[in-house]
Design a protein around this nucleic acid. Sequence first.
DNA 1: TTGCCAGCCTAACGATCGTTCGGTAGTCTC
DNA 2: GAGACTACCGAACGATCGTTAGGCTGGCAA
Lengths: 211, 211
Amino acid sequence: MAILDTNTSEASISPGRDRILRVAAELFLTKGYAETSLRTIAEAVEMRPASIYHHFESKDALLTEILSIGMDAVTTAFDAVASELDHGEASERERLEAHVGGHLRALFANHAFTAAHVTVFPFVPADVRTAAVPQRDAYEAQWTDLLREIAPALDNARTDALRLTRLSLFGAMNSAVQWFDPSEGSVDELAANIVGTLWNGLGSIASGGTD
Amino acid sequence: MAILDTNTSEASISPGRDRILRVAAELFLTKGYAETSLRTIAEAVEMRPASIYHHFESKDALLTEILSIGMDAVTTAFDAVASELDHGEASERERLEAHVGGHLRALFANHAFTAAHVTVFPFVPADVRTAAVPQRDAYEAQWTDLLREIAPALDNARTDALRLTRLSLFGAMNSAVQWFDPSEGSVDELAANIVGTLWNGLGSIASGGTD
DNA sequence: TTGCCAGCCTAACGATCGTTCGGTAGTCTC
DNA sequence: GAGACTACCGAACGATCGTTAGGCTGGCAA
C-alpha cells in the first residue's frame, strides 16, 4: 500500500522528499509542531534548512501533508476491511474486531503519520486544522456508522452512549501507540483484547458478581 | 477546596498571580505551550511581559505549577471519594461510578489545569515533564489499584487487560472535557453513562445477540 | 516622616524562528 | 555542447521569542 505518494498524480517518488516527510512526522509526534524547528528537521535529514523549501512550500504545508497521509492510511485500512467483510457473513463482534485490527495495523505501519494526528492536532495552526478537519470528520463518521449498525440501541441522543463508546474505543486504540510494541506482541491479539474488553464489559468479571 | 494555593505554606493569595495561573492554563490548553508566548499571556491578564517574572521564575516554572495544580485537583478528588466510600458498603459498580464522578467533577471544576495535563503534557520541555511524572504516576496507580480490586480477573500480565481498561476509561473521561457542557447536563449522569457503557459492554446490546 | 517592599513598568538584550535570495553542482534533452 | 531542470547550498532577512536590568509608585511598618 503506497501511503507516501498522496495527491501526487504520477508516481514521482523523491527520496529526499519522502525522507523529510517521515523524519518530520516523527519529530512532530515526539516533540510537537511548534517545538520542532525546520533547522532540527534539516539536521535530522542531513540537509540545510533552505533545501526543505525546494520540496515544501512552508512548514505548515509540510504538516498539512503529514496529517493527510495519516488520515489516508486509516481510511484506506477501514475501506479495505469493509470490502473484505462484504463477502462473508461475519458476526457483529467479528466485524468490530476486524476494523479495530485494521485501524491498529495502519496505526503501527504508518506510526508517526497517524499518531501525529492524535497528539499534535489540537495545537496545529488554524489554517492547517481547518484543512484537515473534513478528512477527520469523514473517518469519524465511518466508525459512528459502524457502531450504530452493530448496536443500534447506542444511538440515543439523550445519553450520548454512541459517542462515548466511540471515544472509549478510539482512546484505547490510539493510546496503544504509546505503549504497545508490535515486535513483541501480535496486533491481532491486541485487537481481540480491546474488543473483548469493550464487548463483555467490566460487569461480567467484577469480583462482586454482575450487579 | 482551595486548589490554587499549592505549595504556598501561607495563605498568601495574590490576585495577580492567580489570574496569571488561570489565564495561562487556559491558553496552554487551547493553543499549546510553545504556541503561547509570554506576551500573549501578559496581554490577556492586562500586564506587561516583564511583570510575570515578578510572580514566576520562568515560563517553565509557570507551566510546572499549572500541571501540579491539575494533578492535585484530581488526586484530592480521588482521596475524598475513597474516604467517603469507607463508611458505607458500596458495590463494585457504585465505587467505580463514585470515582468516575469525582474525577469528572475535578476535571470540570479546574478545567484548564487538569485538561492541560491531557493535551499539553507530551510536548512540555523535558525538565518540566520529569518534574510532573511522579505525581502523574501516583494518580495512575490509584486507578490501577481500584480497577484491580473491582475486577481482579483483569490483572493478567499476558493480555494487558487491566491497562487497556484503565486507558479506555481515561480516554472516555478526559475526552469528555472537549465536548461535554456541564451547564447543560449533569456530571453525575455523565459518570453513570460512562460506567454503564464500560460495565455492561457492547455485547449486551448488540443487534445480533450476545455472540 | 522615613524606609521598605510588593507590584508593575519601560526598554532592551541575545537567541532563535520561518523564510527568501542568489547561487552551484549534476543530469538529462536536443 | 548549449540549455533546462532538479536538488541542494550559504548567507542573510525581519519577526518574535524568553528573559533581564533598572526604575517608578503606592501602601504598610517603625
